[in-house]
């Protein structure tokens, strides 16, 4: 694989993370992370959709008229999301109910539009595919970390399996109810950004 392609794949995972650095795709990152299972399903769905839509738009990039390019991109993404949404409803109904509107909101997920405009419109199909996978994994990684912390401390479970031993509850241990509520997701992402920027000093703002 060419150097440039490996870079497109690896950069968005940590150094140029979709969520932490580019600040894209935050809406769904915060909303579906109260449990690990929907977070993983969401991360996978977004990765697949970004990769495939990147390829399609990259193949079409020379034929799209400039004035209607946003509408074409939106229609392609909307069609892909419709397909993924129907597949989820058919094969993983309980997760799709938990995700509710956020599956549809993948259409307006900034990561998609951002990568389509910034990368797929200027590069070939294979690099675009890798870039899509890289951004999707960067996004999914943050989702999994936040969901892991929230579910573990908020419900004592992971994936539905009880992790915190039940006799701890008898000795006075309580689940942290705030973890499951929306504010904690925001504060957790803020803390992850803190750690990320402390390690990559050139990202710090003045």
């Amino acid at each position: 694989m060419a150097n440039k392609n490996i870079k497109a794949l690896k950069e968005p995972i940590w150094v140029n993370s979709s969520i932490l650095v580019q600040i894209l795709g935050i809406c769904s990152a915060l909303a579906v992370t109260s449990q690990l299972k929907p977070a993983i399903v969401m991360g996978l769905s977004v990765t697949i959709i970004v990769a495939i839509s990147n390829v399609i738009i990259s193949l079409l990039r020379d034929t799209i008229p400039n004035r209607i390019r946003i509408i074409i991109q939106l229609v392609v993404v909307a069609a892909l999301v419709t397909i993924v949404s129907e597949i989820l409803k058919a094969f993983a109904y309980d997760v799709s109910v938990q995700l509710s509107v956020y599956v549809g909101l993948i259409i307006t997920n900034c990561i998609l539009m951002g990568r389509l405009e910034a990368f797929a419109m200027q590069n070939g199909p294979w690099p675009s595919f890798l870039d899509g996978i890289g951004n999707g994994i960067g996004y999914a990684a943050i989702l999994v970390v936040v969901a892991f912390v929230r579910e573990l401390f908020g419900s004592g479970t992971l994936f539905g399996y009880q992790i915190v031993p039940l006799n701890w509850y008898e000795h006075g241990y309580l689940n942290n109810g705030l973890m499951i509520m929306p504010p904690m997701a925001l504060i957790l992402v803020g803390c992850i950004i803190w750690v990320h920027r402390a390690k990559n000093k050139d990202l710090q703002e003045n």
Binding site: I193, W194, Q204
Partner: peptide
């Protein structure tokens, strides 16, 4: 410094939430 800008904005929005 690592929190300046978007990091502290997230925490602020969390508190507002």
């Amino acid at each position: 410094k690592p929190l300046k800008g978007v990091g502290i904005a997230f925490i602020t929005v969390g508190l507002m939430s």
